[in-house]
C-alpha cells in the first residue's frame, strides 16, 4: 500500500510522463480516501496553469488592458 509521500511523487511525475496502469490504479485508490493527495493532484495542474499564465504576462495584464487602444 503506497503512502502519501509516494502518491504525491507519482502525481508530480504524471506532469512529465504517462503513469503505468498499475501506478494509475494506486493513485486512484489512494485519492479516493485521501483528500490531501486529491488536493495535491489538482494543485500540480493549477501550478502549471499559473506558471503559463505568468509567462504570458498575466501578472501585468490588469494594468495594461487600458492601453489596448494604442
Amino acid at each position: 500500500m503506497k503512502k502519501c509521500r509516494d502518491i504525491t511523487r507519482l502525481l508530480s511525475e504524471a506532469q512529465e510522463r504517462e503513469l503505468t496502469p498499475s501506478e494509475r490504479i494506486s493513485v486512484k485508490l489512494h485519492t479516493l480516501i485521501c483528500s490531501g493527495c486529491r488536493n495535491f493532484g489538482s494543485q500540480v495542474d493549477i501550478l502549471r496553469r499559473i506558471s503559463r499564465a505568468y509567462v504570458r504576462g498575466a501578472a501585468d495584464e490588469p494594468q495594461r488592458e487600458e492601453d489596448s487602444g494604442d
Partner: peptide, 18 residues
C-alpha cells in the same frame, strides 16, 4: 495536508497574487 483551493482562476487575474 493540502486543502482545497477555491477559485484559482480569480487568483490569476489578481495582481496581488503575482
Amino acid at each position: 495536508r493540502p486543502a482545497h483551493w477555491e477559485n484559482p482562476e480569480s487568483a490569476i487575474r489578481d495582481k496581488h497574487f503575482w
